[in-house]
């Protein structure tokens, strides 16, 4: 199977869906002009291929998303790119009070088939530009939230998200755009709301998503050399949360670590740990542990940024500690 980048996988999904459905439109800041298409090049070239359907917008996230909602209500399928997840804060009212309210509050009279694409990430950009709000998005009823880790999942999930009749927050990641992975040329879709085993193992279940899936896979390779076989459940969808694989896995391994990039307090890991112990308490052989980002506004300095974020070595350390009965 050919290997392509995460970025290219997203673009292919956009292209295929635009070819398939003329009501699909893409709006965002600099999705046309900057560097040939998007701050991270995801939409490069699409404006030329689909005249009038890929449009640059003012820097006004509340309008990008609000107008995206309205247009979706009016019959389009809007894909709104918000340059980084930090800027979604400006549009939080539109996401929470409007996108997520229309279908239920209006008793099914209105649907909002839109996708909000936005990357998590960091890169020496300091506190306002290095955040992760996965848990916030995932806590909003009536939103769908996905966070693919691989090019394969990114393409399949984006295509599904565009076809979905509900608002989907599609969380990408700056550090994933250039990662490569196998993506078939044939069309495929990945359902929203289905987790995926990224690795099978018997010793410890790691539940994770997004960039931390990739870091966990790196950790798994290190641990395998020590004879520890971790099982990695990639949630892929954060809302609605599919814990079936996590539960299945922990019934086998009896140990679970939730690995997330965002802050620990009120993180999605807390929700996952709580839900798993509610359902599978009698299968736990150790407390459910969490690996998460440290709770500080992200510093600029290289060493401090590095210390703030979780990486493979943090996962390795947590797994070792669990195997040595230190939790």
């Amino acid at each position: 199977m050919p290997e392509i980048t995460y970025r290219e996988a997203l673009k292919r999904a956009l292209r295929e869906e635009m070819q398939r459905d003329p009501t699909v439109v893409i709006w965002g800041e600099d999705v046309v002009a900057y560097a040939g298409g998007g701050a991270y090049g995801v939409t490069a070239g699409l404006a030329k291929e689909f005249p009038g359907r890929v449009r640059d917008t003012p820097i006004a996230e509340e309008a990008i998303i609000g107008i995206g909602i309205g247009a979706a209500m009016g019959g389009l399928r809007t894909v709104c790119e918000i340059m980084t997840v930090n800027f979604t804060l400006v549009a939080w009212d539109q996401i929470v009070n409007h996108a997520a309210k229309q279908s239920h509050m209006f008793n099914g009279q209105i649907k909002v088939p839109m996708v909000i694409r936005t990357p998590n990430g960091h890169g020496r950009t300091a506190a306002t530009h290095s955040q992760n709000f996965d848990a916030w998005f995932a806590s909003i009823p009536s939103l769908k939230v996905v966070a693919p880790a691989t090019p394969y999942d990114a393409k399949g999930l984006l295509k599904t998200a565009i076809r979905d009749d509900d608002p989907v927050v599609f969380l990408e990641h700056l550090q994933l755009y250039s990662t490569r992975g196998e993506v078939p040329d044939e069309e495929y879709l990945i359902p929203i709301g289905e987790a995926d085993y990224k690795r099978r193992g018997k010793d410890v279940t790691i539940v994770t998503w997004g960039r931390m899936t990739v870091e966990s896979l790196k950790a798994a390779r290190i641990l395998a050399e020590e004879g520890i076989e971790v099982e990695i459940v990639d949630l892929r969808t954060l809302r609605p949360l599919d814990l079936s694989l996590a539960l299945e896995s922990v019934r086998k391994t009896n140990r679970m670590i939730v690995v997330e990039e965002g802050w620990r307090t009120g993180g999605l890991g807390a929700e996952i740990a709580a839900s798993v112990q509610e359902v599978a308490f009698n299968y736990l052989d150790a407390p459910i542990a969490r690996v998460a980002g440290l709770e500080v506004p992200m510093p600029y300095a290289k060493n401090l940024e590095r210390a703030t974020l979780p990486f493979a070595e943090d996962v390795v350390a947590a797994v070792r500690a669990m195997m040595q009965n230190q939790y």
């Binding site: 009896n254 308490f281 009698n282 299968y283 736990l284 052989d285 150790a286």
Partner: peptide
């Protein structure tokens, strides 16, 4: 003091 699965 025993883990839940040990008890089960």
């Amino acid at each position: 003091i025993a883990t839940p699965v040990a008890r089960r």
